[in-house]
């Protein structure tokens, strides 16, 4: 299966200053920067934030291929948003909304590219540990997030191989031939992943001794 999709969720081993920034600080800053943009409605402010996020992205030297992969997939969608919102709400709002979404995308990519998955998981576990009181297992939540990140490239790969298979049979115009196999493949993938996690004992609730802070 083709897995060379978006670098979202990928880690880029390295030692840039963003790699060295503690997770809480980095995640907090990027979240404020990314999500904060939704309060911005002036196109100039949105573009300024986008410029800042892109500069941060460039500072980790992601390379051209990774940059291309990050933008290639969502580019058509962003273009549609830009055109549609410009038509509906005026060009200023259109540019602002498209820039804000792009900022979020880039901020998310910066976070995962500069943080090893394990560190990310530890962060989620720490952040979610107060929720244990309400019966939520932080370790499982972290695992859920990790699996979700991991399945993005896999499912994007499924989309493209199903498209090729449909084309090979001359069925590229049939939504049935394109959507159904993706659904089936996704369910099968979920099932196999579930089995693999169960087999490794990772589906079990965390044991009391793993509550030890040294584990989380």
């Amino acid at each position: 299966m083709n897995g060379r999709g978006t670098p979202l969720g990928e880690y880029l081993p390295g030692h840039s200053w963003l790699h060295r920034t503690p997770l809480g600080l980095k995640a907090g800053f990027l979240a404020v920067l990314g999500l904060g943009t939704f309060w911005l409605s002036s196109w100039a402010a949105s573009l300024a934030v986008l410029g800042l996020v892109v500069a941060l992205f460039a500072s980790i030297a992601p390379g051209w291929r990774r940059t291309w992969r990050l933008f290639a997939a969502p580019a058509p969608l962003l273009l549609v948003v830009l055109v549609f919102q410009s038509w509906q709400l005026g060009p200023g709002r259109g540019i602002s909304i498209a820039a804000n979404i792009t900022s979020c995308l880039v901020a998310a990519a910066i976070l995962t590219l500069t943080t090893p998955v394990q560190t990310l998981l530890d962060g989620v576990v720490r952040l979610a540990s107060p929720l244990r009181r309400f019966g939520l297992d932080p370790e499982r939540l972290a695992l859920l997030i990790a699996i979700t990140l991991r399945s993005i490239p896999y499912l994007l790969g499924t989309f493209s191989s199903v498209r090729e298979a449909a084309r090979a049979r001359g069925l590229e115009r049939s939504p049935r031939a394109r959507v159904l196999p993706v659904l089936i493949a996704s369910v099968a993938y979920a099932q196999r992943t579930g089995d693999a996690l169960t087999a490794r004992g990772l589906g079990d609730a965390t044991e009391p001794e793993a509550d030890d802070p040294a584990f989380n």
Partner: peptide
Amino acid sequence: SQLVMPTGREDLELSLRR
């Protein structure tokens, strides 16, 4: 379907979490 993390090292560390 067994390697649930993007790289082998991450997957191993996942195994070791418990």
